[in-house]
Design a protein around this nucleic acid. Structure first.
Lengths: 197, 197
DNA sequence: CATCAAACGGATGCTGCCTCCGTATGTATT
DNA sequence: AATACATACGGAGGCAGCATCCGTTTGATG
């Protein structure tokens, strides 16, 4: 209490408990019913009133961002593995797949994600994740370009959009085979042709 | 009443009138607020009760399909122009742009469209339009492939998905410049390289 | 003008969103 | 252990949109 410690009241225990229950339930509901799931139902199943949910997470996006936190960390962890790869083209490819899986975590996720990526609303809790992903993608693109494996005209942002698109289509229930064809099409689009000049 | 004529009662005049008013209003609302617009509001502004709207168009998709009818016809009309072009690669390109514009008619349109394209629900009034578009795309693809301008591995369905994706991204409010970059990426993906062996 | 099927539309029940406010709960103090 | 107090809780309620039922109106017909 002496050394600069503000000596603030310890936060209540139920706050943490409710928050955890909400996150756990929300994740399940997002998984089962997509990002548009009923928040009222989430609250009820978590054993709290609607107001408690809204107090913890003022908007659907805030809840979504919080639930996504775990997955974001997994994505960052994957980056370490990917960076180990010697081949920058392979690294880019794997990174794109990792991002796509992240976008496909819940059906309907790409929409709020794009909304966040577009506008510069700093209050949208999904904006920061998006910005990070775009610049990370740009890193991988540049590395692959230096190795002459990716066209010079390509930007990280382009492939971010492409990955988001594929995730969106995936979310609409398209068969995996069609998705693979689309991925191949995109890959042909950004890869530098070997038979150059 | 003799010659096989079933002599059925002439349909009431208000039916036609209400239907027309609903379509006109619905188009305006879809344009302004996207495909998710309030059907109640549409009915009210068209000067009819909710029940009348639902009697004419049992589902949102039915109304959407009816409103889209006009645009579909415009698309067919464009086909005539496109078919005039000598260059099959150019024809494919223009066709893809035409489809993309069609998909972008209303914000949020790509979602129900993809839903219709995916499942074989013959009762979904959007399924037929989708099937037509896919096979039309396939025609253009084949023609361009015969001319050696498009990779052999590409299918019409792939480019249908790609066009739908671009339209989806457009609907999320992304800047036109980013869209152009994405279109270019896709084009690089399907075009046959000139420096072939 | 009378008839009657066809179409209409208001009322209604439902679900989900979000907020207000009286109440309960956990922490700190004595 | 009991009290004081801030903090968090949650039910109630207002609102909007969907979709349907059913009593009433409308307009084609003879």
């Amino acid at each position: 209490m002496s050394a600069g410690e503000q000596r603030e009241r310890k936060p209540r225990a139920d706050v943490q408990r409710n928050r955890a229950a909400l996150l756990e339930t929300a994740q399940r509901h997002f998984l089962q019913h997509g990002v548009g799931t009923s928040l009222e139902a989430v609250a009820k199943e978590a054993g709290v009133g609607p107001a408690t949910l809204y107090r913890h997470f003022p908007t659907r996006e805030a809840l979504l961002a919080a639930v996504l936190q775990t997955r974001s960390e997994e994505l960052v962890a994957r980056q370490a593995d990917i960076d180990q790869l010697g081949d920058p083209a392979e690294a880019l490819e794997q990174w794109l797949r990792a991002m796509e899986e992240y976008f496909s975590a819940f059906s309907g996720l790409p929409d709020p994600l794009m909304a966040a990526a577009r506008a510069q609303e700093p209050d949208n809790p999904l904006t920061i994740p998006c910005d990070i992903l775009i610049s990370a993608t740009d890193q991988y693109v540049r590395a692959a370009q230096l190795a002459g494996r990716v066209r010079a005209s390509v930007r990280g942002h382009d492939l971010f959009l492409a990955a988001c698109s594929v995730a969106w289509i995936k979310g609409t229930g398209t068969e995996e085979e069609s998705l693979d064809r689309l991925r191949t099409l995109i890959a042909s689009g950004y890869r530098q042709r070997d038979t150059q000049a």
